[in-house]
Design a protein around this nucleic acid. Structure first.
Length: 489
RNA sequence: GGGCCGUUAGCUCAGGGGCAGAGCACCUGCCUUUUAAGCAGGGAGCCGCAGGUUCGAGUCCUGCACGGCCCA
């Protein structure tokens, strides 16, 4: 069943071809975009004619037929102009208008004028069908609401819902502002492998694939970290990459298996420098892309002006739960104390993961204003440098805004022997069943042994940043084509 | 993985045991400055899929698929 609407349009297509009209011509030269005409002639008085002819092209979004006169709306991007045609002007070509439908692309030529009611219009003296649409667009009043259709047929969502179009335009501006900020600070944009023989740089399960010519299993990267550090070792002082990472985990309003991350690394910097960089970066992006630095996210006002609050992980958990993790340094002791305080925790394999659980359960939802949480347990941070005065902790922060985890940064571990020992600990965790434990990367260790300067590194979740800046509740609303199950047949 | 909710015309949605509905869209007719054009008439459905209960099932029950929200 193709549906009678489609069959009707196919019938019109045949009629057009029967009259020698090609419904999908190769090109059409316009004199200017519709937006230029709208801007230039907005000031025309009602019923006034401009001394100007245009050739314009756009998609027909409305058709009002009135016998021997026809009005149609032509849209090109955000801009719209009305076309006016009548039988006097078009003579025998007028009846061809019968074969047009909403959704078709049309090229028109004629003088610009305003109707008596003040609508800017082009008087159609000639027209060319540019592409016939065989399926009707979504409903004109209510748009496209079905969430599943909006994700699966995003092009319809973009056509029908202007706020969706605006949000994705804003996403592009945000990424563009991110690049211009980093470029202006002297960072070099690079590209590192997405297809990798060994994955690393984060705690996550990977997607696996197979390279036939090499006869070898390969992985999609879960992070850019270990390759960007190799570039710091190679002598670049400041590098960054904006690209897709892939993590083989569940989907949620904050997780898509394929997501965009910005990672940057700076030699001779530490995590304090990365905090400054992060707050300046996001402040700049808000100013550039949004034009404002006080934003509203899910009904709460957030001020992005630096400096942002800095709080150790220990202080943050103490503040929210009354539990001092520094006083309970084994998994068992921490579990018992949490139970005594009536804290609801899911069982975790290690002390560090328990701490992480306390953070995400009790602290993160309260972190609405921008906050850096600092100094994480070494066992959940295998690539970060230990704090000189307390070697069970590392120089690491995570950034939270609006309850979202937006970023992660370290003073990078550059001691190759300590790094080797961390990998060994991760392998032990893997043997105990932790599928997210990191895998030993010998080649990376060799690189580190050649000497990496003290380095600060920062990772920012671009999708989540876009969520924050466009007030989106779900990550699927900021990813054009989010991961979905294939539709059942 | 669990709980709850949703799936009816191209789209937006009513209908919750008794003839399958509305608005937009579509088709036909009238209409030469309309604009959510208007007026008159018409067509359009595997009611997500598969079973079950019933004289009778969009409607009640079970399973499945897809999606959403919450929890793990």
């Amino acid at each position: 069943m193709g549906g009678s609407l489609r069959e009707e349009r196919l019938r019109k297509l045949q009629l057009l071809r029967a009259r020698g009209i090609e419904p999908y011509p190769a090109s059409f030269r316009t004199t200017e975009p519709i937006a230029a005409v709208v801007e230039r002639f907005a000031g025309l008085a009602p019923a006034e004619r401009a001394d100007h002819r245009s050739r314009l092209a756009g998609r027909i979004t409305a058709l009002r037929r009135m016998g021997r006169a026809t009005f149609l709306d032509l849209r090109e991007g955000e801009a719209k102009i009305q076309g006016y045609a009548n039988q006097d002007g078009l003579a025998e070509r007028y009846e061809l208008l019968e074969l047009l439908d909403i959704g078709d692309f049309l090229g028109v030529e004629g003088p610009i004028f305003k109707t008596k009611r003040g609508e800017l219009s082009i008087e159609i003296e000639s027209f060319t069908l540019l592409a016939k649409a065989l399926r009707p667009p979504p409903e004109k009043w209510h748009g496209l609401k079905d969430i599943e259709l909006r994700y699966r047929q995003r092009y319809l969502d973009l056509l029908a819902n202007p706020e969706v179009r605006q949000r994705f335009t804003l996403r592009s501006r945000i990424v563009s502002a991110m690049r211009s900020f980093l470029d202006s600070r002297g960072f070099l944009e690079v590209e590192t492998p997405i297809l990798q023989p060994i994955y690393g740089g984060a705690a996550a399960r990977p997607f696996e694939t197979f390279h036939h010519a090499l006869g070898q299993k390969m992985f999609l990267r879960i992070s850019d970290e270990l390759y960007l550090k190799r570039l710091i070792i190679g002598g670049y002082p400041k590098v960054y990459e904006i690209g897709k990472d892939f993590r083989n985990e569940g989907l949620s309003t904050e997780h898509n298996p394929e997501f965009t991350q910005m990672e940057c690394y700076q030699a001779f910097a530490d995590y304090h420098d990365m905090m400054e960089l992060a707050e300046q970066l996001i402040f700049w992006i808000a100013k550039e892309a949004l034009g404002q630095t006080v934003i509203s996210y899910q009904g709460r006002e957030i001020d992005l002006a630096p400096p942002w609050r800095r709080l150790t992980l220990r202080e943050a958990i103490l503040e929210r739960t009354g539990l001092d993790i520094a006083l309970h340094t084994t998994k068992k002791a921490l579990e018992e104390e949490a139970a005594r305080l009536g804290l609801r925790l899911t069982p975790q394999p290690t002390w560090g993961k328990l701490v992480d659980e306390l953070l995400s359960e009790y602290v993160q939802p309260e972190l609405i204003q921008p906050t850096f949480i600092l100094d994480y347990p070494v066992e959940i941070s295998p690539l970060a440098k230990r704090k000189a005065d307390s070697p069970a902790l590392v120089e690491r922060f995570e950034l939270f805004i609006g309850g979202l985890e937006l970023g992660n940064a370290f003073s990078e571990l550059n001691d190759p022997l300590d790094q080797a020992e961390r990998f060994r600990q991760q392998e032990e965790l893997r043997r105990l069943g932790d599928e997210e434990a990191q895998v030993l990367d010998e080649d990376f260790l060799i690189a580190l042994e050649h000497g990496m300067p003290p380095t600060g590194g920062l990772g920012l979740g671009v999708d989540r940043l876009v969520m924050l800046l466009t007030d989106a509740r779900s990550i699927r609303d900021v990813i054009l084509f989010p991961t979905l199950r294939p539709p059942g047949r």
